[in-house]
Design a protein around this nucleic acid. Sequence first.
DNA 1: ACTAATTTGTAAACCGCCATGACGAAATAG
DNA 2: CTATTTCGTCATGGCGGTTTACAAATTAGT
Lengths: 402, 402
Amino acid sequence: MTAPLHEVHPAGPGRALPDTQQGMRRRNLARVMHAVNAEGPLSRAAVASRIGLTRAAVSTLVDELIRTGLLEELGPERPGRVGRPGSALAVSGHGPAGIGAEIGVDHLAVCAVDLRGQVRARAVRHGANRGGSPEPVVAELTELVRRVVAEAEGEGLWPAGLAVAVPGLVARDARTVVRAPNLDWHDTDLGALLPDDIPLTVDNEANFGALAELWLGEGTPLDFLHVSAEIGIGAAVVVAGGLLRGTRGFAGELGHVPVRPDGPACPCGGLGCLEQYAGEEAVLRAAGLEPGEDRVGLLAGRAAEGDAEVRRALRDAGEALGIALTGAVNLLDPESVVLGGALAGLAPWLLPSLEAELDRRTAGPACPVSVSRLGPEGPLLGAAHSVVRAVLDDPAVVGERD
Amino acid sequence: MTAPLHEVHPAGPGRALPDTQQGMRRRNLARVMHAVNAEGPLSRAAVASRIGLTRAAVSTLVDELIRTGLLEELGPERPGRVGRPGSALAVSGHGPAGIGAEIGVDHLAVCAVDLRGQVRARAVRHGANRGGSPEPVVAELTELVRRVVAEAEGEGLWPAGLAVAVPGLVARDARTVVRAPNLDWHDTDLGALLPDDIPLTVDNEANFGALAELWLGEGTPLDFLHVSAEIGIGAAVVVAGGLLRGTRGFAGELGHVPVRPDGPACPCGGLGCLEQYAGEEAVLRAAGLEPGEDRVGLLAGRAAEGDAEVRRALRDAGEALGIALTGAVNLLDPESVVLGGALAGLAPWLLPSLEAELDRRTAGPACPVSVSRLGPEGPLLGAAHSVVRAVLDDPAVVGERD
DNA sequence: ACTAATTTGTAAACCGCCATGACGAAATAG
DNA sequence: CTATTTCGTCATGGCGGTTTACAAATTAGT
């Protein structure tokens, strides 16, 4: 029961399933779940017209989904219209739950989200995770996970999967942390250190942040660029509602896009990379501040106070971001750009110069830039929701357990 | 029979088909076609094991495909192994054909490609198409199309669709040329000017060139960046075997990626765009040459002769390309970069500096850069093959005609 | 040579899944 | 109070792939 490492981003309802009648059934189960999930309580007839099947077919699909605890019958709808009122169906609040976890530089967090998207349990532990060996940190995380799972189970939920967001590069096996500079971890197999009774997925926090924006953001399109910064600057490219990961899984390295090709050398080997202008360290240095604990808070505080030096540093960073984003926007033609992570908190001072650069360098209407309203919770929520989406995308796999 | 504007880029075998039994059948027909097309002559049993269906199911699918003329039975295979030899199946060379057409700045070309990928008929007309009104040019193209179709029909083929490559931006309706600066065409609806008895698709020549590379190139991966230049510099982003088009269809505008943010002004409104360093005009100017007829040939000739000024101009252009590509590669992590179009001919003098820049700006192993071996034929072949792929992706639609 | 083993293609029976059509149930409209 | 509309379900049927069985065509072994 450890095994089936569910895909983090199945770019749509149930993909590569075998094209046999059973596969068809599985896909149709998924379509019912998606319809009910997306458009609130719905009657069987409403679902049928949404997904293009007959009422009879939907009836049997719904029966199965209710039997396996993924849907709930809420009872008769309020009449309003002519004809017999339907019986409202809703995604279950007592079925599977997605367990999301985040390993931050100086905190650990875990939460449980039900199929409806509600956070039903959470736990946080503050304190630096930097530098030490991974084992004790992951042991603490495991403890938090157990606590959250117990709490969720108390509410009638059961864990369908665990997704862990880490600040670093993750191998395509979705288990191994290849490199997490801020934690000083290298080639760490989290699969060996975490509970093995729950299907596990590990991914970069920026990716989960982008997915959170995709699934939870208001009016977020299916094609956008999500930019976030912790210590490095990363972008996640979302195309047609799925993450673009790249051949080696390294896509989105916006931080090393050349901004001024003859600029200062970057540890990556390049010259004048964006990170040299808009990276946390670079901005702190330009602002004349010492790198300390809550660096983003410090910058935001000073900028809010009106500190001219800090504001200039942020304005310059926004300019560099604008230049790098011009390239990205020209290449990808996204519907919008979303600023998340630490950038969201600094947006008031970054945005003006960023948008100005983007605007004047783009022919025609510029690509709209917005700020994530999810704040620092993004990656954690994205992780938990990725498990929920996996269930919605293939309800049959969880139905098999009993 | 004019209507069904088949998708140019259905990112895989038969997508958004309805999830009913008929849809399943259609997808399985497509899978049989793809298996036979990709792996040469195959017996029914071999196809069955490839696509995961039973021999019996494949038998009925093959029967239908033979009846509609998409597959051919070649007869018994040469034994070799133990057991009854299978009967070899091949994609038909007498069924539907894809008609590809290209409107170049100074030529028109049309060809017919059968399902096997063989070019079975072609016609070319040289002479400038620049500046004048579209009608007479399209009338000439129509004449060429009629000739090629007649020739193909003489060989037992019938036209399944017409795909036209144009040097400009095409609206998402795949019929209207929004802007083709080199032809001086604006908002031209080719659908109204071309024969209306064949399903029509119009697309940018760079897109078709990239697709040709994807389908015809040797060892081309499913994720790569195809860079081509005619007058502007365009990139096509291929992800998972499909074109990334962008929200407005403007993805791939590599020419306006900022290379030196304080560089010379570009007509697009930007500063220091790649096109200001590696665009045809810019290179000619840097090389001290006058813009004339065969500009690429001129540059290649001088460079081959050893003209130092030309070589320096090309080296500088390669450098600028390398900088812009560093950004693109960091963002997309493609498996390779392919140089096509006019760039292919100039590659010997562009590549060294291009690769040097890419190399030193990238951490770890640099993204390999290769040169298209399709030459100037790419877009034309890509157009014709796009029709062929559409048939392979959904064999049922052509089966319906009779 | 002759038999045994293996593989292919097809036909018949079967099962699963959705569509069709009919029906009772529960609401509104007149 | 009846006609109409809509919902959910049931029985029937068609369609599509699987299972099972078998004849055909080849190689392997004696």
